[in-house]
């Protein structure tokens, strides 16, 4: 086998391999939406986060604007402290509501942000004051049964 023909084949092989890697990286995967350099963090406290996991998306109006960076348990207030890493391009008012939503009926959970009307914007290390907990299925069923029981009870 001629030296140069061999080199040609190896070169093609390497190019094909790198192209496959690029294909996977760009067309198949998505890079983590937010980089630490162009993001800012805010904290939201919840009484129940349900099935929220780190790296879950933070969406507003259905568009991904950030990721859940960290979830901690506050032993003093017995609440969950969720750190949200938001893209610097998007500023939210100080009275934004953070709610834990579910995609679809039984899908994975994410944090939905609903903008308020305050002219002052949230800054790095700020706290979101108004939060809405996750809907826990068992409680929902419990309410439903209780409600039904109430309806049927003699007045």
């Amino acid at each position: 086998m001629n030296r140069t023909v061999l080199d040609l084949w190896v070169g093609l092989f390497v190019i094909a391999g790198v192209a496959a890697l690029l294909f996977l990286a760009l067309k198949v995967g998505s890079t983590s939406a937010v980089n630490t350099s162009d993001s800012y963090e805010v904290v939201a406290r919840f009484e129940n986060i349900g099935g929220l996991k780190p790296r879950a998306p933070v969406k507003s109006a259905g568009v991904v604007v950030g990721r859940v960076a960290d979830i901690r348990f506050d032993n003093e207030t017995y609440e969950a402290a969720v750190t949200l890493r938001l893209d610097k391009r998007y500023a939210f008012p100080k009275d934004t509501i953070a709610a834990i939503m579910t995609s679809g009926l039984l899908g994975e959970q994410y944090v939905g942000l609903e903008a308020g009307g305050d002219s002052a914007k949230l800054k790095d290390k700020d706290r979101i004051l108004i939060t809405q907990d996750a809907v826990v299925l068992e409680n929902l069923i419990g309410h439903f049964l209780y409600g039904k029981a109430q309806e049927g009870a003699p007045q």
Partner: peptide, 19 residues
Amino acid sequence: FWSQMKSSVDFEQDILNGV
């Protein structure tokens, strides 16, 4: 097919780990 794929495959977690 492609959009679902793109939104669930993460570069660092999945592709890089595979490499």
